[in-house]
């Protein structure tokens, strides 16, 4: 696979006695939606965090666009996370003191975009995720499904190259989960962002192009094409 955008090669990582990653390798292509599946505790989140440069493996290599993440300076790595990566977690992790609009505008503000411009872009993304009606509300005042769609808007607002999503619908009922996935994957496909989607739910994984299964800290089937 020559068109890999993000790769993990033979990652190993322990937490005390627990081996979380035991030689995990994975390739993510530009623009694809890849589902990371597997039983609970198999190492999916740990792998995701290594791919995103949040965790550093004890051995093995992660490359993004040909660059070894470990070889970058801390500053370069955080710049990469800020500009090229987007994140969606199980529980939105929105800033509770800010309105939904301000939450979505925040990543742009951190990149130095003017307040006005950031708010306009944020409003556009809230509309695309069909949550423009909660723009002025704080995260505590919106439903779980609305909160996750705001979180997706926040992940997309910087037009990242890769979005990392860890069980983004894990706390939602079927109907709200479907709505999040439908809008999320449609928006990601439109912008050309790749998505690494951790999920143990097949109906959620069905929104992906391809799946990789993690078991005992290793990726079992990395080359199953869609």
């Amino acid at each position: 696979m020559t068109d890999a955008l993000l790769t993990a090669h033979d990652l190993r990582l322990r937490f005390g006695e627990t081996t979380a990653l035991d030689g995990a390798s994975l390739r993510v292509r530009a623009g694809e939606v890849l589902a990371l599946m597997g039983p609970s505790g198999s190492g999916k989140s740990t792998l995701l965090h290594c791919l995103a440069g949040i965790l550093t493996p004890e051995s093995g290599q992660v490359t993004f666009d040909g660059d070894d993440l470990a070889a970058l300076t801390d500053a370069a790595r955080s710049a990469l996370r800020r500009t090229k990566f987007g994140f969606v977690f199980q529980f939105g992790q929105l800033v509770p003191e800010l309105t939904c609009l301000e939450n979505v505008a925040l990543p742009l503000r951190l990149c130095g975009v003017s307040r006005r411009e950031a708010r306009v872009a944020a409003a556009g993304w809230l509309e695309r995720l069909e949550v423009d009606d909660v723009a002025g509300k704080r995260p505590g005042q919106v439903s779980g499904g609305q909160g996750q769609r705001v979180a997706v808007a926040r992940a997309l607002v910087t037009r990242p190259t890769v979005i990392f999503a860890d069980e983004p619908t894990g706390a939602l009922d079927s109907l709200n989960g479907e709505r999040v996935m439908k809008l999320f994957t449609a928006a990601a496909r439109q912008t050309g962002a790749a998505v690494v989607l951790v999920t143990h739910e097949a109906r959620v994984a069905a929104y992906s192009d391809r799946e990789a299964v993690v078991r005992d800290g290793r990726v079992r089937e990395q080359e199953f094409a869609a």
Partner: peptide, 23 residues
């Protein structure tokens, strides 16, 4: 385990198609 992964892959292939049709 191979058998299970293969079957999951086959199931997901159909599930993706149904998801597209639904969308």
């Amino acid at each position: 385990n191979d058998l299970l992964d293969t079957q999951r892959h086959e199931h997901l292939r159909l599930m993706r198609e149904l998801t597209r049709r639904k969308t």
